[in-house]
Structures are given as structure tokens and as C-alpha cells.
């Protein structure tokens, strides 16, 4: 296990390096001068001399590769640069926001799994029942819903019509409820559909018939064997959804004004505060890579036959 984990972690290094290069190139190619952006975002008149001085101070007059290496070395030291808008270190700004985003992501993933898997299993064993048909229509609709529609509907119902929640989400449990629900609805739809399909395909396997023939209880087969075998593809769909979840959290955080990393990224894009955008993309991508790692490791835990390649 340890050896496998170590090998997987070593394989991450080139991927992470490539991501830093991608993010850095993206910012490098951005039209507009960061020095000018910094000076204008801080207000005041910009003279050509001031601009040249600022460019030198920010190291913008050095070649691409030198700046890239410098940037990566700083990241390794935990320094993501300073924000143009308030001169605060980007890393500490983003970390605070990241913890709030993670709280939302973890809560909604957990909530979705807890709700969706029982629904998926039940609809698989009661195929074509009324409940199954209702769930099928609901999950199909949930899959096609733009995430802002879900968030705005929840806001309209709970904040404006019932007035059960304030419009601006507070960072406590009550405030977390609506954003979590908004992120969960599309995930529940995906997970329930996937679980249903997996359990159904497992139920038609010959080993299930064999176990039935030997008189083993339905419940034992379902929970001990079928669910265990379906777990691999359920984990796959959960980890694939994390990609969508990270993207969706930008929209949801913006609507509920949840002070997470997605919200911060959007305000920084509007303010042309590039170091923050750069840092946010980098952190979210790293998060994604780590989730992929955990997914691969969990496959190994479920099924020991899986090894490297």
C-alpha cells in the first residue's frame, strides 16, 4: 500500500509542474500590463516614469523563463505574491477562503452520497415502480438544470418567499444550508442514476443467481456483495463530480455571497487582480489533482488486485 501510494505521489510532481506552467503562461499571455493594472487598481494618476519603476519593482522586465522559475520557487516557499488591490499576501487571503469552500464542498458531497446511494439502490431493486419513475424524472431534470437556476430558485423560495434564511449567507451552519443544498441537487441526480445503473448490472450477474440458489438472504447479497462490487464505479462518479463541484461552487458562492475561493476569484477577475486569480486557479487545480490521487488510492483499498499499470 505504502509503496503504491509513494509511486502515485511521485507521478504527481510532473503534473503539478505542468499545471504551474499552464497557469503562469495563461497570466503571461493576458493582454494588459500588470504594473498598469496594479497602479490603476490602487488609484492615482499613472505617469510613464512611475509605470517603468513599478514594472522594474515587480520584475516584469525580466525574461519569461526567469520569471516562471522565480514564481515556482516562491510557491514552494508558500508565497503566491501580493494582491494588487490591497497588497495583502495572496496565499493567506486564499487559504482563509479555501477552508470555507472546502467546508461547502465536503458538506454537499457527504449529503449527496448519504441521500443518493439509498435512493439508487432502492430504485434498482424496485425497477419500474412508481417511485423509480418519479426519481427518474427528477434526476433527469436535476441533470439538465443550470446550477445558477437551482441556487436562484432556492434563494427565491427560502429567502424571499418564506424568509427562512437571510439573502446573504452567513458563515455559520444556518448560512451553509442553502449553498450546500444548491450544490447537492445536481450531484444527487448524478449519483442516484449511477448507483441505480451499477446495482442493476450487478444484480444480473450470475453470482447473484448462484447465491440466491444457495438460499442466501436477499439483504446479505445486496449489502455484502452487490454494493461492495458497485462501490468502485460509485467512487469514480463521485470523484468525477468533484471537478464539476469545484466549478459549480464559483457560481453558487457568488449567488449566496459565500466568502469562498470561487467568489474571491470572480471579484478578482472583475478587479483585474491577477495574482489572486492565478493563485485561485492553482489552488483549485491542485485540489483536483489531490482528489484524483485519493480516488486512485481508494480503488486500491477496495480491490487489492489493482496495481500500478
Amino acid at each position: 500500500m505504502l509503496k503504491y501510494a509513494l509511486k502515485r505521489i511521485i507521478k504527481l510532481i510532473p503534473v503539478l509542474l505542468a499545471i504551474t506552467l499552464l497557469v503562469f503562461t495563461l497570466m503571461y499571455l493576458t493582454p494588459g500590463d500588470p504594473a498598469l493594472a496594479k497602479l490603476t487598481s490602487q488609484g492615482g494618476t499613472v505617469t510613464p516614469e512611475l509605470l517603468a519603476e513599478e514594472r522594474h519593482a515587480m520584475g516584469l522586465d525580466r525574461p519569461f523563463f526567469v520569471r516562471y522559475v522565480d514564481w515556482v520557487l516562491n510557491i514552494l516557499k508558500g508565497d503566491l505574491g501580493t494582491s494588487y488591490s490591497d497588497d495583502q499576501p495572496v496565499a493567506s487571503k486564499l487559504m482563509k477562503a479555501l477552508s470555507r469552500t472546502l467546508a461547502l464542498a465536503a458538506a454537499s458531497t457527504l449529503f449527496s452520497v448519504v441521500i443518493a446511494i439509498p435512493i439508487g439502490v432502492y430504485t434498482a431493486i424496485r425497477k419500474d415502480s412508481l417511485f423509480d419513475n418519479i426519481v427518474r424524472i427528477l434526476t433527469f431534470t436535476g441533470n439538465a438544470m443550470p446550477n445558477f437556476l437551482i441556487a436562484l430558485l432556492l434563494m427565491f423560495l427560502f429567502c424571499i418567499k418564506i424568509k427562512a434564511f437571510p439573502v446573504v449567507a452567513t458563515t455559520n451552519l444556518k448560512g451553509m444550508f442553502l449553498p450546500t443544498l444548491a450544490l447537492s441537487i445536481p450531484m444527487i441526480s448524478k449519483f442516484a442514476r449511477q448507483t441505480r445503473a451499477d446495482v442493476m448490472s450487478q444484480l444480473s450477474e450470475e453470482y447473484v443467481i448462484g447465491m440466491h440458489a444457495r438460499g442466501i438472504k436477499e439483504r446479505t447479497i445486496l449489502f455484502k456483495n452487490v454494493l461492495h462490487n458497485a462501490l468502485g464505479s460509485i467512487i469514480t462518479i463521485v470523484s468525477l463530480q468533484v471537478r464539476v463541484l469545484i466549478g459549480g461552487s464559483v457560481v453558487t458562492e457568488m449567488i449566496f455571497r459565500w466568502p469562498g475561493i470561487g467568489n474571491m476569484m470572480m471579484t478578482s477577475i472583475t478587479a483585474r487582480d491577477y495574482p489572486v486569480v492565478q493563485g485561485a486557479v492553482l489552488i483549485l487545480s491542485t485540489l483536483q489533482v489531490l482528489v484524483n490521487l485519493v480516488t486512485d488510492l481508494s480503488y486500491y483499498i477496495i480491490d487489492k488486485r489493482i496495481s500500478l499499470e
Binding site: 503534473v15 499545471i19 499552464l22 497557469v23 495563461l26 497570466m27 499571455l29 493576458t30 493582454p31 471537478r243 464539476v244 469545484i246 466549478g247 459549480g248 464559483v250 476569484m265 470572480m266 477577475i269 486569480v277 485561485a280 486557479v281 483549485l284 487545480s285 483536483q288 489533482v289 484524483n292
Partner: peptide, 14 residues
């Protein structure tokens, strides 16, 4: 391995 919408937001924002 990069979240699609995040990259798209960054590119579109730029």
C-alpha cells in the same frame, strides 16, 4: 486534471 469551469473562467476573464 484542471477543473474545467475554473480554467474556462480564468481564460474568459483574461
Amino acid at each position: 486534471s484542471v477543473p474545467q469551469l475554473v480554467l474556462a473562467i480564468a481564460v474568459a476573464g483574461m
